[in-house]
């Protein structure tokens, strides 16, 4: 995130607003508490100065709508005052229903079948928020560091990261090296793992969250007369 904030031809960002989506998620995602506290640890322990990094949240059950959901994210974050929105690979994605870069395509050139022949910020009455599309960071053994895929020329030896691989590492109880997880962030994951007896979202966690977060409302009566 630290490097991603300074990529591309945009002005370096003045600050990073993390707006975590909190609510029902797919089985195997990290639990809400760990997501929020984990992000906070990034600035609490100085990995990104708190002068430039703020953690907020939006209560929303993920629909995994990839490009369509990215429009909602764009609206929310624009309304929060953001000038740019970072989009990575597989934004709001599950499985391989969408192209891994579908959201970036929408924000780069539009998707006519969605009614957006231009990017969302280029259509009439469109959004003002602009995308910062991020390809991929990998570990390059030749450079000996984390490198950006569009900058590093060693794709043939690059060691890619994978969320699934990292989740597997955690499930096996192996502490991820600092190059993957800041130690303080990992300890927060373990803290909530002890609370829920599980490091990730499972059915029991979803049932618990449904009881805590869902609000029963009376059916809305909407007049059909204008």
């Amino acid at each position: 995130m630290k490097n991603a904030a300074y990529l591309g031809d945009i002005e370096p960002c003045h600050g990073i607003l993390v707006n975590a989506i909190i609510g029902a998620k797919r089985l195997g995602d990290f639990v809400d508490e760990a997501i929020l506290e984990g992000h906070e640890a990034v600035n609490k322990y100085g990995y990104i100065s708190p002068r430039r990094h703020m953690v907020t949240m939006t209560l929303w059950d993920m629909r995994y709508g990839n490009p369509l959901e990215s429009l909602l994210h764009g609206i929310i974050r624009q309304n929060m005052g953001c000038t740019h929105h970072m989009f990575g690979r597989d934004h709001a994605a599950v499985g391989d229903y969408y192209d891994p870069y579908a959201t970036q395509i929408l924000w780069e050139k539009g998707i006519p079948s969605f009614g957006l022949p231009e990017p969302p910020y280029d259509v009439d009455k469109g959004l003002k928020i602009r995308p910062v599309n991020i390809k991929e960071f990998w570990y390059c053994p030749k450079c000996g560091e984390i490198a950006y895929s569009d900058t590093c020329g060693h794709a043939d030896v690059a060691q890619r990261f994978s969320g699934s691989f990292i989740r597997g590492l955690i499930a096996e109880g192996i502490e991820p090296p600092p190059i993957i997880f800041r130690p303080e962030v990992y300890r927060i994951i373990v803290k909530w793992w002890r609370v829920y007896n599980y490091p990730f979202v499972n059915r029991r966690y979803l049932e618990l969250k449904e009881r805590e977060l869902e609000v029963d409302l009376k059916p809305m009566v909407v007049s059909s007369r204008r």
């Binding site: 640890a41 499930a171 502490e175 303080e184 300890r187 927060i188 002890r194 007896n197 490091p199 059915r203």
Partner: peptide
Amino acid sequence: KEDEYLPPPNIAYCG
């Protein structure tokens, strides 16, 4: 059984 429980690692919490 893993869907319900995975044993957490034994590390100190520093958060």
